[in-house]
């Protein structure tokens, strides 16, 4: 079995109308043995950026710390908050530094991007474990249930969902996908990001 499946876990992000959502399961396992049902793999980067880090557990911690350090350095040097687009590039280059000995993580970025006009636009991106960026306009998926997430999301997602509808869509997509994945599940967490607030909900899921 691949090291990418060792601890299990899945993340998905979706674009809505003036909002984005990012969600993950809460399982941490060691192969088929479940260890924790409250393992957070989505982290806030700024008030408007969240990053999901599905993959090898030890690298989740390392990369999260790495991103925290680099974002802090960015904030100090630039004297401004990092934007999602920029952060996605930071994620990509951080991973590519380890091109021939990669972190076993496939990050997912979701946030609201500040526009020159002063407004905000939804932004999502995902990369593979060596930092190949994918800027999708609809949704991105990663983790052990990624195939299932693709299938359900392709069926349920539609453009311009309002925040509440986006929450329902991403939740249904995630729950139904992880229920068919042995390495993901055991509850879920969903963050819906709009320009002025983030709503975080923890979902009850099947515990088998």
């Amino acid at each position: 079995m691949s090291i990418m499946q060792y601890n299990g876990g899945s993340v998905i992000a979706m674009v809505g109308k003036d909002c984005v959502a990012i969600a993950s399961d809460l399982r941490l396992g060691v192969q088929s043995l479940s260890i924790s049902a409250n393992y957070q793999k989505i982290f806030p980067i700024t008030d408007r950026i969240y990053v999901g880090l599905p993959g090898l557990g030890t690298d989740v911690t390392t990369l999260h710390e790495q991103f925290r350090y680099r974002v802090n350095m960015y904030t100090i040097k630039e004297e401004r908050e990092i934007e999602p687009q920029t952060f996605a590039q930071l994620v990509s280059s951080t991973l590519y530094e380890r091109r021939f000995g990669p972190y076993f993580i496939e990050p997912v970025v979701a946030g609201m991007q500040k526009l020159p006009t002063g407004g905000f636009a939804p932004f999502i991106a995902a990369t593979d474990l060596i930092g190949c960026l994918n800027f999708a306009k609809d949704f991105v998926v990663a983790g052990t249930a990624s195939e299932k997430l693709f299938g359900v999301a392709e069926g349920l997602w539609e453009p311009d969902l309002e925040a509440e509808d986006l929450f329902e869509t991403i939740s249904q997509t995630l729950l139904n996908a992880v229920d068919r994945d042995a390495f993901s599940g055991w509850g879920a967490v969903v963050h819906v990001i709009t320009k002025d607030k983030v709503v975080t909900r923890t979902l009850k899921g099947r515990m088998d």
């Binding site: 195939e147 299938g151 249904q172 729950l175 139904n176 229920d179 068919r180």
Partner: peptide
Amino acid sequence: AAQALVQPFLDNQIYFKNQ
């Protein structure tokens, strides 16, 4: 080939799983 994509969608839409 696309069982993994379709089956969870069917769970949701036919069996109303998680609804």
